[in-house]
Design a protein around this nucleic acid. Structure first.
Ligand SMILES: [Mn+2]
Ligand SMILES: [Mn+2]
Ligand SMILES: [Mn+2]
Ligand SMILES: [Mn+2]
Lengths: 231, 231
DNA sequence: TATAAAATTTAGTCTTGACTAATTATGAAT
DNA sequence: ATTCATAATTAGTCAAGACTAAATTTTATA
């Protein structure tokens, strides 16, 4: 039997830092600045510096940190961040499918609970749902072992005109935007094209046979798409 | 519309104090001593004193506290404690019925989550379960409005010999004891009588037509019963 | 009623994780 | 190579909640 590396205990605050670093470091784990973290976590930059120093000082360490040059996750830190992300997305799927939450309600509840469910509860939820691949917003749920199936998404606001696209996921942070998207039928799986023409503050899209509709760039930036074949 | 009194925000620690005071103050809310709280919460008495002083100092206040003479809950404190108790028992029922937890696993998970579920999640869980009256151990689940249907229970270890009794609830704090009870068929609803004879360290009980069995006093003290008619 | 044991409180310390104000380093533009 | 704006760090403070050790009550006992 292989040695089970015990994950050091973490607090909600530490979890939130690790998750934020994961989200901000992009597809290939670039360094994240203190300011970016402060903005994302809605915390003062001075507080971030303090936390990063403490985190980097511990052993085993979750992050690598160089003064004035940002942080990035160690393998251990990434493992923990992904675990929290799995909790979050499984919870969203569960609240939505089993407890009748709407897709704009799930995020807030999952954001808190993700830190407090045990491995047992995580497993039972996954089993109950049949190991779902994505959450209600189309976000990929990391596997139990930490693997995250890759997917190349592009913001709809940057998608070329005239090329068919499929909505792969939408941002879950803004409930009002989510309700608006639902109303317009902009949900994962929807096929659409961006009509040709300039797009300074808004863009016109066409979905199936329906009439085209106008979308603000802000909303379009919260919608991620993939090429039709990659559905 | 009646004014919705907003419940002041509480921390997990404060919740645990209020719940412990509720549990220790018995059917009619007697004062609870610092030592009793320290024992129940597995915390030093000095820490308890500090917390009680802070709690009593706040306004609106959750507790009434007199130096050297214990605390008891105010109406507000009782409201909050009962709310947490409802969370706990609903969660136990939910974990057991929906997520296949065994009755010795539910307590630990509920003990953490009870502090972090929203009112919305509480309501959805209750709806999903059809507003259950009791948790998996037979404990009464407080109503949404804070009402707790009364029930006069007696420890099996103190039940008179020869009188038929029904198990109403069992303690949920000791997983090993719970597994033992399940194995012996000692679950809420079970009808039994205590056979006549002395009971110094153990007592003999008879259930239905089966052979009688011997029970340690410790285990019998964790089983609460009611007269047969009061099922 | 005097005294000892048990229960409680006080005083002082620690860790976590936030904040503000002040200071320094970095990087871009002169 | 300076200079300046921006980013980041330091220094000092605060609140929550725990702990230990020492002082005080209360209460039970003789
Ligand atoms: Mn969170
Ligand atoms: Mn999501
Ligand atoms: Mn608790
Ligand atoms: Mn219970």
């Amino acid at each position: 039997m292989t040695t089970k590396h015990a994950m050091p205990a973490t607090t909600e605050a530490v979890d939130d830092y690790l998750k934020a670093i994961l989200e901000l470091s992009g597809p290939e784990d670039q360094r994240v600045t203190s300011n970016a973290l402060a903005g994302h976590l809605e915390i003062r930059a001075a507080s971030v510096t303090g936390m990063l120093q403490k985190l980097a000082g511990h052993t085993p360490s979750f992050v690598r940190y160089e003064k004035h040059h940002g942080v990035h996750l160690t393998a251990l830190g990434k493992r923990r961040a992904v675990e929290i992300l799995r909790h979050h997305r499984l919870l969203e799927r569960f609240l939505h499918d089993v407890l009748d939450y709407s897709w704009d309600e799930v995020h807030e509840e999952a954001e808190r609970l993700e830190h407090y469910i045990s491995e047992r509860l995580e497993d039972r939820i996954a089993a109950k749902l049949g190991d779902p691949a994505v959450d209600p917003h189309g976000h990929i749920i990391p596997e139990k072992d930490g693997a995250i199936p890759a997917r190349d998404e592009v913001a709809l606001s940057k998608w070329p005109c005239g090329v068919t696209a499929v909505i792969s996921s939408v941002s879950d942070r803004d409930p009002a935007a989510l309700r608006e998207m639902k109303r317009l039928g902009l949900v994962p799986g929807t096929i659409l094209t961006v009509e040709t023409g300039t797009r300074t503050a808004s863009l016109r899209i066409r979905m199936g046979s329906e009439a085209s509709l106008r979308l603000s760039c802000e909303l379009a930036a919260e919608i991620l798409v993939v090429p039709e074949s990659a559905g």
